[in-house]
Computed example of a mutant assay.
Amino acid sequence: MAKKTTKKEKPVILITNDDGVTAPGIKALVEAVAHLGKIVVVAPDKPQSGMGHAITIGHPLRMHAVHLFDGVEAYQCSGTPVDCVKLAVDKVLHRKPDICLSGINHGANHSINVIYSGTMSAALEAAIESIPSIGFSLLDYSIEADFTGAKQYAAILVEHLLKKKYDKHLCLNVNIPAIKAELIKGIKVCKQAYAKYEEKFEERKDPHGKQYYWLTGDFVNFDTSKDTDEWALKHNYVSVVPVQFDLTNYALRQKLISPLTKLS
């Protein structure tokens, strides 16, 4: 008697972002990976850029089904990107997805931006929960940005991670240069560049004469090495930086153990 064959279930792919559920970037990401698994979208109902790893604890969260993506179960949430991941796992999927994708962000999240980014915080939240994750960002803030190259490399990376099992806490910060797809040279696995914003607050007055402040500044790269995300993007590569939520400085920890232990 012939053995019955069971149909292999498609991997579950959770998609979120910080630009909001109606942003072109999240639509591009859904389209890029639709053939790779069962897509479920849970994303903020409004832009949440720069929210970092914020969670909502002072007021209730709202979540509603939306019909924005053909054949895809999708929800909009009143909370932050991290809230979206938490709600998706507990109240939508009732299980952990096989992978969590965040983006495609409108604008860069290289170097120090990973600290402030709602896009990357959503991905890191998934990693904390032992869900492999990737945050995607395109170096173009325009609402009319061309996501062709970003979609191409998103599909390549997601397909690879669904086939190859790495660390269960894997989280990749992926940035794509804003150039034509055919001009992208490939992928570079990099370290995070030492770069930051030299900031200042412009002081202004509103129509009532009351003071307010507007954050401005310039982005400055202090890192001249050739293995950073900044270098890769400048030279037309997709940068891939493995990131982690463990912020321990292990080298400094070793130096401090002996002298500080003697003080106690």
Rank of each mutant, 00 (worst) to 15 (best):
T119G: 15
D227G: 06
E203G: 04
V114R: 07
G118W: 01
L138W: 00
E31G: 03
Y213D: 12
I134F: 06
A28Q: 03
Q152G: 01
S102A: 15
I99Q: 05
T224C: 12
I143Y: 05
E230Q: 14
R95V: 06
I179S: 06
V241I: 14
V240A: 05
S142A: 13
G217L: 08
T5H: 11
V189P: 08
Y237P: 03
E9F: 02
V92H: 04
S111N: 14
K165A: 15
A123T: 02
E144N: 13
P47W: 06
K10M: 12
W214L: 15
V220R: 10
G149N: 07
S102K: 01
D227W: 03
Y197Q: 13
G37Q: 06
G52L: 10
V33C: 03
A88I: 03
K180Y: 05
P24Y: 02
L138S: 01
F245M: 10
N249M: 04
L138M: 08
T261Q: 13
A2F: 12
W231I: 07
H235P: 10
K86D: 14
V66M: 07
T224D: 15
G37P: 06
P81I: 00
N249F: 03
N249D: 15
G20W: 01
A178Q: 07
F245V: 13
T228K: 04
L263I: 13
G217I: 05
I176K: 00
K210D: 12
V40D: 05
I184R: 09
A181V: 04
I143W: 04
P259F: 07
C171P: 10
E73N: 07
C84M: 09
H64V: 11
K205P: 07
P207I: 05
K7V: 14
G217A: 10
T216H: 12
E31I: 00
C77A: 11
E199W: 08
V30H: 07
A65L: 04
H64D: 12
F69M: 04
I134D: 04
L170C: 10
